[in-house]
Amino acid sequence: MGARVYPYLMVLPAVLVVVGVVVYPVISGIMTAFYDVTLRTLNTGTAQFVGFRNFERVFADPVFVQASTNTLIWVVLNVVAQLGLGLALALLLHRAMPGIGFFRSGILVPWVVPSVVAVLTWRWMYDPSVGIANEILLKLGILDRYHPWLGDTATSLYAVTVESIWKGTPFVMLLLLAALQMVPRSILEAASMDGASGWRKLWYVILPQIRVSFAIAAVLTFILTVNNFNAIWLMTEGGPLNSSEILFTLAYKYGFQRFDLGKASAVATMLFVGLVIATTVYLKLIQAKEGD
């Protein structure tokens, strides 16, 4: 009898906690998107069912359109750059050379630094009057005078993207390095014997071997980028003039600056649907990998 009940007892606390703090809040969050929840209705307990009214109000907001465009730019730039640079770094570091451990540890530093500390450091480096980023670009001849990177609507989103790429690339590199180390050496040697050049070897031999890990890294980067709040919030708060607003920060503003919780939940629910699709793809990929 004991052997039958034990596993359930052992799993029970985890299931209870997850149902209580993940499943229930998610359901309640989606429900909120269909009620007119504000601070006032929350206090009186008279939130009314309003159907898709919150979604209509979100779609009517011009800032929502801008935030959606920004989210697209933000996600595409981050995913492409992090995967490209991460793969390049993994290929570079996947070789036996003197001092390679030193380089690997150094390149992992951005991943290890706490994100709030990293973001604030970059904000300081972007300082419009004494920022080192301006000074370096000036010395290199790229700029002719200091530029307020975070204060200009034309550059704010891209300036934050650079920080986010800096922070996220090492993790991608780590995932791909682990995958490269599992590619059998004999395959690479056979390719070299056949006279495959560097690029052809990369395209026809290495990439097919690590394609599942690569796809997993892509989906993870996508999820982490959509959910990256700290970088934008602590550098620009989505400004100036919503030029670096993404859907996450927009939902946050609806919810915790205007306390229009229904509208915030509507945006959050749309993000949620997108992420559920991405997660499903991710899980399918993991299962494909286990089937290999």
Binding site: P7, V11, A14, V15, V18, V22, V23, Y24, P25, V26, S28, G29, I30, T32, V37, L42, I223, V226, N227, F229, F248, A251, Y252, G255, F256, L261, A264, S265, V267, A268, T269, L271, F272, L275, V276, A278, T279, Y282, L283
Partner: peptide
Amino acid sequence: SVTLPLFMLYGQMFPPVLLLIPFYVQ
């Protein structure tokens, strides 16, 4: 014992912004 772990992984992917509001209310 097979579906529960997958369910756990799903739980990890939920966007914090969706959880933020119910947590606040609770």
